Amino acid sequence: MPAERTATHTVPVAAARRRRLRADQARQLADLLRDGYARTAVAALADPAWQVRAGAAAGLSAATPETAVPALAKALADANADVRKAAVLSLLAHRDATEARAALATAVSDPDADVRAYAARAA
């Protein structure tokens, strides 16, 4: 019997599907941001699922720097490296803003090599 149909695996599989759905929804925020929904993406940065936080950080690349940069700078302290990577990549889209460059400068000392490499692109 497939793992998805056994009682012991049903809950973890369903939870994973819900996380993936929320992550997909967060990625769709990029389209919505053009219509002024940046506050929704900022709020999604507090979601318990790292996939949602990463999607929200990615979506903030389309927001105005005034809204996105402070939230993305905070996301650089996220416990999950994928969220920090998404935040750095979005900050690169806002690198004309002084605050974004300052945040990227702090990311070059991140414990994750990928985050450091992405942040180095700003130089």
Rank of each mutant, 00 (worst) to 15 (best):
P2I: 12
V83Y: 00
P70E: 05
P70W: 13
S61T: 07
Y37V: 06
L45I: 12
R39P: 11
L91G: 03
A71I: 03
R53N: 00
Y37C: 07
E4N: 01
A68L: 12
V11D: 10
D112V: 12
T6Q: 15
L89D: 01
D114V: 03
S61K: 13
E4G: 13
V13Q: 02
A44Q: 14
Q28F: 10
L76H: 10
G36S: 09
L72G: 03
D114S: 05
V115R: 04
A63F: 07
L72M: 10
A41F: 08
A120I: 06
R53G: 13
A100I: 08
P2G: 15
L76V: 07
T6P: 06
P70D: 04
A93D: 04
L104G: 11
R17E: 08
A119K: 07
T98Y: 13
L21P: 00
R17D: 04
T6N: 13
R22Y: 06
D112K: 06
A97W: 04
T67K: 07
A43E: 14
A23F: 13
A86F: 10
D96L: 12
D35A: 07
Q51N: 05
L60R: 04
K74P: 00
A7M: 14
A3T: 10
L76T: 10
A54V: 07
L21M: 03
L45P: 05
R95G: 06
A102M: 01
A119P: 06
P65A: 11
A71M: 00
P70S: 01
R27S: 04
A63L: 03
R19S: 01
A97H: 04
R34Y: 14
A16W: 08
R5A: 13
L60S: 04
A56I: 02
P65K: 06
A122L: 08
V42L: 08
S61H: 08
V83E: 09
R39A: 15
A44K: 04
L72F: 03
T40C: 01
E4M: 11
A75R: 07
P111A: 10
A87I: 02
A23P: 03
E4A: 14
A14S: 00
M1G: 15
A100W: 11
L92H: 05
L72W: 12
T106R: 15
V83M: 12
A79V: 09
V42C: 07
A102S: 11
A117K: 07
V13R: 13
A41C: 12
A73N: 14
H9F: 11
A122F: 08
A117D: 00
T40N: 03
Q25W: 03
L92P: 11
R84K: 09
T67N: 00
V52E: 05
A81C: 11
P2E: 02
V69C: 14
L72V: 03
A46G: 09
D82P: 05
A68N: 00
D24Q: 12
H9Y: 04
V52T: 14
A81P: 14
Y118T: 00
S90W: 02
